[in-house]
Write a protein that binds this DNA or RNA. Sequence first.
DNA 1: ACAAAGAGTACCTTTTTGGTACTATTTTGG
DNA 2: CCAAAATAGTACCAAAAAGGTACTCTTTGT
Lengths: 172, 172
Amino acid sequence: MFRVSRLTDYALVLLCRMADAQTGAAAAAAQSAQQLARDVRLPLPMVSKALKSLNRAGWVQSQRGAQGGYRLARPAQDISVLAVVEDMEGPLNLAPCDGDSQCTLHAHCGLRGHWARINRRVRRELQGMTIAELVEPPALAELADDPLPPVASAARGRSDHLRISMSTEHEH
Amino acid sequence: MFRVSRLTDYALVLLCRMADAQTGAAAAAAQSAQQLARDVRLPLPMVSKALKSLNRAGWVQSQRGAQGGYRLARPAQDISVLAVVEDMEGPLNLAPCDGDSQCTLHAHCGLRGHWARINRRVRRELQGMTIAELVEPPALAELADDPLPPVASAARGRSDHLRISMSTEHEH
DNA sequence: ACAAAGAGTACCTTTTTGGTACTATTTTGG
DNA sequence: CCAAAATAGTACCAAAAAGGTACTCTTTGT
């Protein structure tokens, strides 16, 4: 199944944590990677990796030395989930092929342009979601919005992994 | 990057091929895996795997023995991309965690309910796309629809893998 | 009976992922 | 000016997943 990598998830979690901390009183205080790792209970090396990437991409500012650490480089509502995901994993693409070599199949299959369409839609969804939204408790309306009608499965006998899971939880 | 697996892609390609072949004259003729593999230029064992899964899920019918093979079990417009993807890979979930164990983080991060929202949107997109649509040459309107405004990157220095690729091609 | 098909299972190899370790560099505080 | 605290960079390793192959069994039409 196509999933976001753990490191990407860590990055999002960290951004949420930083946004949460900085809406408080000490908005300018940098938070060390060590402290953040403790806060979110993740291994420090992973946290460092994620923060380094976020720094390179420009979403957080880093300060070295004693009393150093990281702080958000811009307001949380200006950081989209899409931006973080693409910074961490490269350009979003659901198709199993790259896009810049030649496809020996696109003469046979009709999938050529359609993956692009799917990608655009997914990208738009992720772009419309910001860190600021994530730290807010989700509105009830959003949690319940557009309930998908149950997928009509054609399976007759063994409907093993065909259960209609909504994949609602978020775990680590 | 979260991508659909190759086998899933193969399944889609094969369904397209079968749909294409069956819109022709011999609608009832079963196509052997070997022939299909030749048609789409994919390794036979992989093709067999994909077709077996599709059969179990009920999207194609199989017939053993001489003159046997596979045929679509239902009209192409009744087979959604979502259904195929979830049959091949399990329930769609972009979050890096499963959903049925306990998340030690959901107290800290605000991502708990939001992945579910994202998943629903993506699922809806894929559900609204059928094999029948895929075999039709993509409408120009669809290829060009909702062009996403260039993602504003915060990166200043090295914007390595931050290029705004649309991931348009489909290759093998 | 035989040959042509699918069904099932097991295995292997490569790539990706998740994670750790170590070293270098920068900066502040005493 | 030195030591401590922090980030930056690189290299490495192990586990898991993906991609692919091989082989055997069962079914079925001629």
